[in-house]
Design a protein around this nucleic acid. Structure first.
Lengths: 214, 214
DNA sequence: GGTCTAACGGAATGATCTATTCCGTTAGAC
DNA sequence: GTCTAACGGAATAGATCATTCCGTTAGACC
């Protein structure tokens, strides 16, 4: 670890360390199980429950924070991919980046477990726009199979995020395997059958942000 | 509905009708939400809770029954596909059949919510063997991309089963769309990159049958 | 050294949710 | 006109959690 913040000694240093420990633990716990109890987060972070509530007024607030952080990460990955010259490589890097950082679990799968703020909605729209730009570039370059639309990417993320077997390292390996398969099928090529049904609409995908009970 | 069992009149006829109503409702409810309460099943079936417990000693027993029924369906689909002459068509029909009947949600996704019986295990093994036969036939015919193994099919089912948007009809449409994409990527063809990691082993897949809490 | 207090740990509280049981009804069987 | 299998659904008995409360404690400051 780097020590770029060791200005603060003693007690306050511990508090800072706990800040990140709690966020890391929460990310890890809620990615594995979106309905996990707060006590599980505290246990993984190695702190007491009160340390959580000192920082976040409620579970919802913690989840919102995690989700926002996920959207941030999503945007960063999209922006980095946009720097790549080759349109296909840019898209592939983007998709790979999202899958490798498991950002989908942090955003869409957490949405619906809390009531979203307008800011989160805007942030989500902006992120989607970045992804669409990458998609359109590849599409105009003719490297994508016919009939695909940007929202297909979201569904592919969803499918890959459903893979979870063994520890997180093994899960990552398996996701890479099936990502390769999916990417191969997205490229333009001979023998591509027509896609049988329209992709999900924005409205359909937006339903995920409606608060759910489960 | 056909009336092949109307020998029994009155009260017993109602009981028979309830038998299937309950099983249908349970299938529908637990596919949508594996952790659904028994009362939800009763509500959908249009009966009282006691009608459930008259037939199944516990929730576990109902889940086991559903799972067994799903394995039965799985085998039937595999056997029907085995009749098809063309190896690729046989495999494609099999995969399509599993996805269309949402049988994966009935077997693997329910496994782990109850303690499995030895019979279920054997039944599962037998089903897997049928699927492997279809896979091997296609593999030997050279129509599959290199590096695929039978267990890849299970992961593809898993990914497609994770798609759920709107009502069941819309969900089916979307699954057909992404099934087409996945199938295209399974065929042998030019430009197929090597798959980056080994597929799931039987042991890894078997872990799903270990009882979980969630 | 002696206080003071921010930051904690974690038990206690108050809701909520559910599997299962219990008991009074009722509609056909006879 | 009885009798009873099959019900409906309220009541019971436990879980499971989010959140609060209160007693500790380890640095900060004198």
């Amino acid at each position: 670890m780097s020590d770029n913040e060791v200005r603060l000694p003693g007690r306050q240093a511990e508090a800072l360390r706990n800040d990140t420990a709690i966020l890391d633990a929460a990310r890890q716990v809620f990615i594995r199980e979106p309905a996990a109890p707060m006590s599980a987060v505290a246990a993984v972070a190695g702190v007491g429950i009160s340390a959580l509530y000192k920082r976040y007024a409620s579970k919802e607030e913690l989840l919102r924070t995690l989700c926002g952080e996920g959207l941030e990460r999503f945007s960063a990955i999209a922006r980095a991919a946009a720097e790549i010259g080759d349109p296909w490589e840019a898209l592939a890097q983007f998709v790979t980046g999202i899958v490798e950082s498991d950002v989908h679990s942090l955003t869409v799968k957490l949405a619906g477990t809390f009531t979203p703020t307008p800011e989160l909605h805007e942030h989500a729209s902006a992120s989607t726009a970045l992804a669409e730009k990458l998609f359109d570039r590849a599409s105009k370059a003719g490297v994508l199979r016919d009939g695909l639309v940007p929202n297909d990417l979201a569904m592919i993320f969803e499918q890959l995020a459903s893979i979870r077997l063994g520890d997180s390292e093994r899960t990552l390996q398996l996701r890479r395997r099936y990502l390769r398969i999916q990417l191969d099928a997205l490229r333009a090529g001979p023998d591509r059958a027509d896609l049988p049904a329209p992709a999900a609409t924005d409205d359909e995908l937006g339903q995920r942000w409606q608060p759910r009970r489960t």
